[in-house]
Amino acid sequence: MKITDWDDAYANAAHIPGAERFLSEWPVRTETLRAKVAPVILHYGEGARQVIDLYRPESAVQGLTIIVHGGYWMRFSPDEFGFLAEGPLAHGQAVAMVRYTLAPEVRIAEITAEVAAAVAVAAREVPGPIRLTGHSAGGHLVTRMVCADVLPEELARRIVHVVSVSGVHDLRPLLRTQMNATLRLDPAEALAESPALLIPREGIRVTCAVGGQERPEFIRQNDLLANVWQGLGADMGALHLPGVHHFDVIDALADPDGVLTRCLLDQSRA
């Protein structure tokens, strides 16, 4: 079906009954976690938002999970999405929640560079294998981390799995949306920052996960990367989670026994 309303195609809240309830619950859930496990604050730059909330498990650290929040690169922070750390924490993962500068203060290419710097700082703090996951814009950013030439080779070799949840992997459609007045994408940056148009690191393992009740464009974007990167040598998986939409799909990561937590930690195969 031809898309004639690109803003509607990428609108989530308008198509989720009671959407505001989810948005208001996220910071409450994060505060509940912080009351139990206080994060350590790490700085990866001098900017006000260039910080990481690092949660450490009570048990011995088994590795590092890095989580990048969504919000179309222009909203939210770990203050809302911090509750997602609970799933990996329960399995001995140290969890780094990345905060980054938002558009329009910076462009998406600059956000990519900030997240790469954050990954490097978190990796120096916690030894062992690294797993990356992110939601929506965060899904885009974690897949950018495993495009060729983004991270140093020694650091990239530590990454064992990337899980992009409801990620936007081809930015060109966003050029047609009103939100681009904030994002300030131009055709050249849309090409340069779209993982689906770039080369993944050889043999990298990536799972693209999306809710079965999400907007058709998010399902298409999910399967696009899985298809293209499989043909470029990546170890790809595609996961459609039935009965969930763009806002509750992430509950499967916050849950220690959730399908996304198990997938991220290699306890189940996509």
Score class of each variant (00 low, 15 high):
residue 1 M to V: 13
residue 2 K to R: 15
residue 4 T to E: 14
residue 4 T to Q: 12
residue 5 D to C: 08
residue 6 W to D: 03
residue 8 D to T: 07
residue 9 A to S: 10
residue 10 Y to G: 02
residue 13 A to V: 12
residue 16 I to A: 06
residue 18 G to Q: 10
residue 18 G to A: 11
residue 19 A to E: 05
residue 20 E to T: 04
residue 21 R to F: 08
residue 24 S to E: 15
residue 25 E to L: 14
residue 26 W to G: 00
residue 29 R to A: 07
residue 30 T to S: 05
residue 31 E to R: 15
residue 31 E to F: 01
residue 32 T to D: 12
residue 32 T to V: 09
residue 35 A to L: 11
residue 38 A to G: 08
residue 49 R to K: 09
residue 52 I to W: 04
residue 54 L to T: 04
residue 59 S to I: 05
residue 60 A to R: 15
residue 65 T to E: 11
residue 67 I to D: 03
residue 68 V to R: 10
residue 69 H to L: 03
residue 69 H to E: 07
residue 71 G to E: 09
residue 72 Y to P: 09
residue 73 W to L: 09
residue 76 F to M: 12
residue 83 F to S: 05
residue 84 L to G: 01
residue 85 A to M: 00
residue 91 H to W: 14
residue 92 G to S: 09
residue 94 A to Y: 10
residue 107 R to M: 10
residue 107 R to A: 12
residue 108 I to G: 06
residue 110 E to A: 13
residue 112 T to P: 00
residue 115 V to H: 04
residue 124 R to E: 15
residue 124 R to C: 12
residue 126 V to M: 07
residue 128 G to D: 05
residue 129 P to N: 04
residue 132 L to G: 02
residue 134 G to S: 01
residue 134 G to F: 02
residue 134 G to T: 01
residue 137 A to H: 03
residue 137 A to P: 07
residue 138 G to W: 05
residue 142 V to N: 02
residue 146 V to T: 05
residue 147 C to V: 12
residue 149 D to W: 01
residue 150 V to Q: 10
residue 151 L to C: 01
residue 151 L to I: 02
residue 157 R to V: 05
residue 157 R to G: 11
residue 158 R to I: 00
residue 158 R to P: 06
residue 163 V to E: 08
residue 165 V to F: 07
residue 166 S to F: 04
residue 170 D to C: 05
residue 171 L to Q: 08
residue 174 L to W: 12
residue 175 L to G: 07
residue 182 T to N: 15
residue 186 D to V: 09
residue 189 E to I: 09
residue 191 L to M: 14
residue 192 A to Q: 14
residue 193 E to W: 12
residue 194 S to Q: 09
residue 195 P to N: 08
residue 200 P to Q: 13
residue 201 R to W: 07
residue 208 C to N: 12
residue 209 A to S: 07
residue 212 G to K: 01
residue 213 Q to C: 11
residue 221 Q to N: 11
residue 222 N to Q: 09
residue 223 D to F: 14
residue 225 L to P: 09
residue 226 A to Y: 06
residue 228 V to N: 08
residue 230 Q to V: 03
residue 231 G to K: 15
residue 232 L to Q: 15
residue 232 L to R: 15
residue 236 M to R: 10
residue 236 M to N: 04
residue 239 L to C: 08
residue 240 H to W: 08
residue 245 H to P: 02
residue 248 D to H: 00
residue 251 D to M: 03
residue 258 G to T: 02
residue 259 V to C: 09
residue 261 T to A: 02
residue 262 R to K: 13
residue 263 C to P: 04
residue 265 L to A: 02
residue 267 Q to K: 14
residue 267 Q to M: 15
residue 269 R to D: 13
residue 270 A to S: 13
